[in-house]
Design a protein around this nucleic acid. Structure first.
Lengths: 119, 119
DNA sequence: CCTCTGCGTAAGTCTTCACTTACCGTAAGC
DNA sequence: GCTTACGGTAAGTGAAGACTTACGCAGAGG
């Protein structure tokens, strides 16, 4: 299974996010992607390779051109990961709020600066 | 605005993802986070700073300790960005499929290659 | 007072990686 | 056959950043 980690690493780069953003609006060839980008065409090629290895895009050959498009499978996997993460993060936040309240309640040594009470 | 880009960059690092994952299960102090991590405590501090600048975590002082927790605001912003991205990506995929079909129809040469994984 | 704990910060090192130019293979057109 | 588009790959370079150790500062407690 393509790890979500690879996808997150891939989208951690601004240029790759820009390329992926562009592909999200429709498939495009490498040259078309390189136009309107501040980097060279080989750079775009290398970024596309990373995105492809991460399972985020796929490519097909059309004549002499190579057309790239978003790979729905990778996007779905990433979205599922993010959904799990989302719920866990919300749980964690709830735990944080409860711990904050209970520790205050039980008289633990929490001298929150000189702020005193958090309203 | 700029938050989601910063958040994506922040989560592009494996160590920061690990820290954020840990915080998603509940708040923790810097020392507690550093324990069970393969990196030193200052490294964790620096990662926490990046996560905090990205709006993904918040901190409060408890005595001599500093307790970090996920910041729901940042998580919400990132999720909204992802939702928009998700729908755009799906649109792009539909466009790709349609273009693919039409080009096949017109008898063009097409060679597919996504990620070679036979069964 | 002094000490000890907990954490942030400074300074430096070293690895990663984004980008470049140059080159080579492949598909279409003459 | 040759030539011209298009794009992947190799090799090299420079900068970003992840990590370390050493140090400084604030709070809790004897």
């Amino acid at each position: 299974m393509k790890t979500y980690a690879e996808a997150m690493d891939a989208l951690g780069d601004p240029t790759r996010r820009r390329i992926f953003d562009r592909l999200a609006e429709g498939p495009a060839s490498v040259g078309a992607l390189a136009d309107g980008m501040p980097v060279s065409r080989p750079a775009v090629s290398q970024h596309l390779r990373v995105l492809k290895d991460a399972g985020l895009v796929s490519d097909r050959q059309v004549g002499t051109r190579r057309v790239y498009a978003v790979d729905p499978a990778g996007v779905v996997a990433l979205r599922e990961y993010w959904d799990r993460f989302w719920s866990r993060a919300m749980d964690g936040f709830r735990v944080a709020a409860e711990e904050h309240a209970s520790s205050r309640e039980s008289g633990m040594q929490i001298k929150e600066s000189s702020d005193g009470e958090g309203s």
